[in-house]
Simulated scan of single mutants.
Amino acid sequence: MSASDQQVPQRRTVVSYVRRGERMTAGQQRAWDRYWAEFGRDISELPEGSLDTTGWFGRSAPLVLEIGSGMGETTAELAAARPDLDHLAVEVYKPGLAQLLLRAEKMGIDNLRLLRGDATVLLREHVASGSLAEVRIFFPDPWPKKRHHKRRLIQPEFVELVASRLREGGVLHLATDWQDYAEQMMEVCTARPELRNSYADHPGGWAPRPEWRPVTKFEERAHSEGRAVHDLIFERH
């Protein structure tokens, strides 16, 4: 473990996710049985040390990590659109991962690998410093009640950890439809000296919505309920 790894906070006692049911459809179960052993890993069962993504993907390409892939629709579209990038998706919800496997099968995607479990553990224990080209966190659970804000994923310690895993020029891309969470994200990311807001000269520092990011069901719901969606894009320098 390098000195930079040792400086990263080691534990987070409050998790940002809730365990949900694991009942799967017949199609999801089939995809899980057929493809998980090849394309998926359980974070709790990974060997010590950094994940060998070169061996797993069979090549060395820029690595993108998506945290919270949900049911995988956006993840599959983004991986299919950029075959030159290797995509890692981490999610705790087993049926969501199974659905993503099903989508990958139907779309013929081979540059995508799945990880089940806590993204903080993955980053802290199995991702090498400076190894990620991009980290994407789209519409994380907003935990809207004030007493639950401590459960939000985007906290100073977590962003410090993410930043340490980004390579120079690597990107942290966040999106949320909750105004106060967007403001919290902006405050936390701006406070990191190794991160630079790529759109600091735009109103509020918000990034324009990238055309390549698919519209998610969360975004559609936000628009229907009158909530603005904010993208934040920070680069490691």
Rank of each mutant, 00 (worst) to 15 (best):
E194G: 05
N197F: 01
K94D: 09
E235K: 14
F158E: 10
G49A: 02
T176D: 08
E48T: 11
E211K: 11
R167G: 14
T216G: 02
I233M: 11
F138T: 08
Y93I: 07
G72P: 01
A37H: 15
Y35T: 11
Q7A: 13
P142T: 08
W206L: 08
P203D: 15
D42E: 15
P208M: 10
R221Q: 15
G130I: 09
E194K: 02
R196L: 10
R165E: 08
V121R: 13
P214L: 04
M185W: 03
I109A: 10
D86M: 07
Q184W: 03
A207Y: 05
R41T: 03
E235C: 08
S129H: 10
R236A: 11
E220H: 10
E220W: 00
V188A: 07
G70Y: 06
H87A: 09
E225G: 02
E48Y: 00
L174T: 08
Q179L: 14
S131V: 13
P208V: 09
L78Y: 00
P9V: 07
R209N: 01
A128N: 07
P9T: 08
A98W: 01
R82D: 12
A26G: 04
V188Y: 05
F218M: 04
W36E: 05
L232Y: 02
Y17P: 03
D180N: 15
D110I: 13
F57D: 06
E160N: 14
G205C: 05
D110S: 15
R116W: 05
E66S: 03
S198A: 15
R151V: 02
A119E: 03
S131G: 04
R11P: 00
K217L: 10
I137L: 12
A37T: 14
P83R: 09
G68C: 03
E235G: 01
A222G: 11
R227E: 06
G117L: 02
E105R: 10
Q10S: 15
G27A: 03
P83V: 14
A76F: 05
V229N: 07
I233W: 11
R103K: 10
V14A: 14
L112T: 10
L195N: 01
A182K: 03
V18S: 13
K150R: 13
A81T: 02
T13R: 15
R136Q: 13
K146G: 02
H202K: 05
A104V: 11
G117T: 12
L174W: 07
Q6M: 09
P156Y: 07
V90Q: 06
G96L: 00
R59V: 01
Q155W: 04
Q155Y: 04
G27F: 03
R11V: 14
Q6A: 13
E105I: 05
R82K: 13
H223R: 15
S60R: 14
R209T: 13
V121P: 00
R152A: 02
T74I: 05
P95F: 02
T190C: 09
Q28T: 08
G170H: 04
D84C: 00
D33Y: 04
R236P: 06
V18N: 14
D33F: 06
Q179D: 15
G49W: 06
D5I: 05
G27E: 14
M71A: 14
A128C: 04
T216E: 11
A31S: 15
A98T: 09
E91C: 04
F218P: 00
P210V: 06
L232R: 13
R34E: 15
S60Y: 02
L114Q: 11
D84W: 04
R59Y: 01
R209V: 10
E219D: 10
A61R: 12
W56N: 10
S69I: 04
L51E: 04
